[in-house]
Nucleic acid binder design. Structure first.
Lengths: 341, 341
DNA sequence: TTGTAAGCGTTATCAG
DNA sequence: CTGATAACGCTTACAA
């Protein structure tokens, strides 16, 4: 039906193998026949059948992407499209295609990954959401199949190539920033502790307080969902304390938006009564009222480096595992000030 | 290297073709051998090589998804992850895989699509962003390759299967809703007129005004980018008029957020001084201040129906083209009230 | 009900 | 520099 390599060969008066070599731009083909073959390809509108090619060459030039479960709320966070953008760019540059995988349960996701990997649809896999004791990771490691993780692995850190921010340091800096403003009562509103990012940031928060000899109060530490009213409950809880904090670090701009609303309802002014720093620096951050001081964690770059390095991993069999740390940057806006007396 | 159909055949003491039939669950195989073969597959951890299978069967059980250009700002709108979620679900249900495609320019995108289609990596394609005179559409139509468009085609409406909202009616209803509140001066802040959705909504807006014998003022109609400060410029412009509107319809929640901010800066209170209705009903809508009355256009369903119907198209050669209209619903929150005297 | 064998469209190995 | 020819792993007539 479709035009094949044989049709091209016939028209150009060469063997199919020669056409194949022209496609691969082999050096061992005379410039003259190359021209002739290329013209024939053009003329016939030839495009190689990728399935045949993959089958013969035992490789696919495609990367698999494991998305967060579609039931996951986190899916609505703009984090996902941004990281995808980065991944996509890194792949495109090396002419790799992207293959998507989801599932409603962990089991479904694992099955989809297995199919994709064993079915040889992809040469490598990018993981977005590492959970504690992730079965997908165990599976890939076991088979020694190339993959990179965006975020920090729960175990075997040294054996898993991953790209992450230095979340500990980022949060430490943020906390120090607030301390330097004169804040002593600083609250922490983070996501679930089953995410490494939360663990790291919590630790950064604690370290900063300790270094400044500020007491760590457990009432100041709240873990909530990243999204939605999560922030609202958290902030009510924490502001109802006898001695409420004068500053807050929040895990995510989206959540910070909820925080801002609740504060408004409670009649608490930002930054006059309460300072806030959040993370991610989404468009949201500059559109909220007041605009949020937020840590830009370079989401695009996270994705870009992930695919870029996965390709390296795929193409060089003995590439060592790596840990890639993407830089972050505090973007100062209007949600912080000195505490009131 | 990997375990193949032959290994299974050998272990189960049957011919490879028999194994193939077992995989396809052919009725012409005895239950007994089915058991035996399945056991062998299990034992060896067999998974079919999808490239070989695709090559032999000339079909892929995969759908291609053309994403908005990664340079596109629209990419940051939560619309994308939501529609992807729907698409993914529809595909998963029928055991179809998803293949992604992007590019930085229209040319790159077209090339990627051609590669994907002619390379026979997918059986059908879902398009997200139809532009005027879309070359991807022309290409697919020309080749008679199955595809569905999310949104409304610019031309050949009857010949292109697409899933869309009734944007004209939705906007008409919204405008009538505001009129019923007593508003006579109603502004329109929409996206670029190169999007069909804008054209449809603008028309709905005009129809509602006409039906109510309200004059259509061109100064009340502003077209801006969907995102970012777009809203802010637009609202400044429109509120600076001698007789500013008492109500606004806005194309998108995200944009409405920008509008809210600017209004706040201008000292204009919502809904007391100005009523607002927006579209999409993102999480944002309930988190903004005040919470936005917004039209839920069922983004998930848009995606879900797209992949579901694309699969029908792919599997039934002579399926007629369809137009699928997804329902919408006005979600009333706190951004509307009667106009002041 | 099962086996044989001919593709599917490439790439890769050997000759020449 | 180029051409045969054998894989690659599976599906699918056609036989049996």
């Amino acid at each position: 039906m479709a035009v094949t390599i044989k049709d091209v060969a016939r028209l150009a008066n060469v063997a199919p193998s020669t056409v194949s070599r022209v496609i691969a731009d082999s050096t061992r083909i005379s410039e003259e026949t190359k021209q002739r073959v290329r013209k024939a390809m053009e003329q016939l509108g030839y495009h190689p059948n990728l399935n045949a090619r993959n089958l013969a060459s035992q490789s696919t030039k495609a990367l698999g992407l494991v998305m967060p479960s579609s039931k996951d709320v986190g899916f609505q966070n703009p984090f996902f499209p941004m990281v995808l953008q980065g991944i996509s760019e890194g792949a495109q540059e090396k002419n790799y295609a992207l293959h998507l995988t989801t599932g409603k349960s962990d089991r479904e996701i694992l099955d989809a990954v297995i199919q994709m990997v064993q079915g040889q649809r992809v040469d490598g896999v990018i993981l977005l959401n590492s959970k504690v004791d992730d079965r997908v990771i165990s599976y890939l490691k076991e088979r020694n199949f190339p993959f990179v993780l965006i975020g920090k692995p729960y175990k075997n850190i040294e054996e898993i190539t991953h790209v992450d921010n230095d979340n500990l340091r980022a949060m430490k800096e943020v906390t120090e920033y607030l301390i330097s403003y004169g804040h002593q009562q600083i609250g922490f509103i983070g996501g679930s502790l089953e995410f490494m990012v939360t663990i790291d940031r919590l630790q950064g928060y604690k370290q900063a307080l300790q270094n400044a000899s500020i007491e760590i109060k457990s009432e100041y530490i709240v873990h909530e969902q990243f999204l939605r009213e999560g922030g609202q409950d958290a902030v009510r809880e924490i502001m109802a304390l006898d001695q409420p904090p004068t500053a807050l670090v929040v895990a995510d701009d989206f959540m910070a938006l909820g925080v801002l609303n609740t504060l408004d309802e409670l009649g608490i002014k930002v930054p006059d009564d309460l300072s806030i720093v959040s993370f991610n620096n989404l468009l949201l951050a500059e559109m909220s009222k007041p605009p949020l001081t937020s840590v830009d964690i370079n989401i695009f770059e996270l994705g870009y480096q992930a695919s870029k390095n996965l390709i390296v991993l795929v193409e060089n069999k003995n590439e060592p595992t790596k840990r890639l740390i993407i830089s972050h940057r505090l973007i100062e806006r209007l949600s912080c000030s000195r505490p009131k007396q």
